[in-house]
């Protein structure tokens, strides 16, 4: 491809001049600087959302498997609420609509609102996986825990969850990778992440192919890194004597 121009990344974002070492200085930034900063935003949104999603998703998934009807209803309602509305709509809701009803949210940075939106959207999906993981365990496991004198929370903590989480590592891996990719919708509320960078930079430079290829690469690297980390964890927690985790 003779007419590719990868030097676009070395250009100053104001003057459009190529800077020798590709990194700006003294207040000037290059497109490369901007892209790396955007990558940082993408990773920040993704990782924080993932933390929110795992905490709320696990909690709601657990509630849905308890003997208490009220708690089951709460978990079900939560899950259905957050998985039946499109992600993009949820982000806009958090940004425009929710603060209209809850004044305390008006001063909150849009970054955090996006983390809430993406995190809670994903929590519904993780809740479903956690529920499935717990319910896939033999019923006798819960009974064995209780029969030994464990309280219900202890039974979850020591017996059910360690196995349930091992079983759901594969779908959790997909979900964690999804969150990196889904973070791209944060452009809708002007978070300076990779997709927003790509759209703006291609307008300014007219080098859309190079810019989108670079951004594609960064998304791929980020998602794939999560995949490898999860694979490593899966190997570390595998149980001797079980072919697949939970294979019984």
């Amino acid at each position: 491809m003779a007419d590719w121009d990868w030097q676009v990344f070395c250009k100053d974002t104001i003057e459009g001049e190529v800077i020798p070492r590709c990194f700006g200085g003294g207040g000037d930034i290059t497109y490369l600087d901007w892209m790396l900063s955007a990558w940082g935003w993408t990773l920040s949104v993704s990782l924080l959302s993932l933390a929110v999603a795992i905490v709320f998703g696990s909690l709601m998934g657990i509630l849905r498997t308890t003997p208490n009807r009220g708690l089951v209803f709460l978990g079900n309602a939560w899950t259905e609420l957050f998985r039946n509305i499109p992600l993009l709509v949820q982000i806009v809701l958090w940004y425009h609509v929710v603060p209209a009803f809850i004044p305390a949210l008006r001063g909150v940075p849009s970054f955090l609102l996006v983390v809430a939106a993406l995190g809670l959207f994903t929590s519904a999906r993780i809740s479903e996986q956690v529920r499935a993981g717990i319910q896939s365990l033999p019923r006798g496991q819960r009974m064995a825990g209780l029969a030994m004198g464990f309280t219900l929370p202890q039974t979850y903590r020591f017996i059910l969850l360690p196995m349930a989480f091992r079983i759901i590592i594969p779908p959790l891996t997909s979900e964690s990778m999804n969150i990196v990719k889904n973070s791209s919708v944060a452009f809708a509320v002007s978070i300076a992440e990779l997709t927003l960078f790509a759209m703006q930079a291609q307008e300014e430079t007219a080098r859309g192919i190079e810019i989108y290829l670079a951004v594609t690469g960064l998304y791929f690297i980020s998602a794939f890194a999560i995949n490898r980390i999860m694979h490593f964890i899966e190997g570390r927690v595998s149980v001797p004597g079980l072919i697949a985790a939970g294979g019984k």
Binding site: P138, G140, A144, G145, M148, G149, V239
Partner: peptide, 21 residues
């Protein structure tokens, strides 16, 4: 207190129910 009562009543199940992990 059921947990307390169960802690000194041993139970053995048909499918063993050892904790696999």
């Amino acid at each position: 207190n059921l947990s307390r009562l169960r802690s000194h009543v041993g139970m053995v199940f048909q499918h063993f129910e050892l904790f696999p992990h």
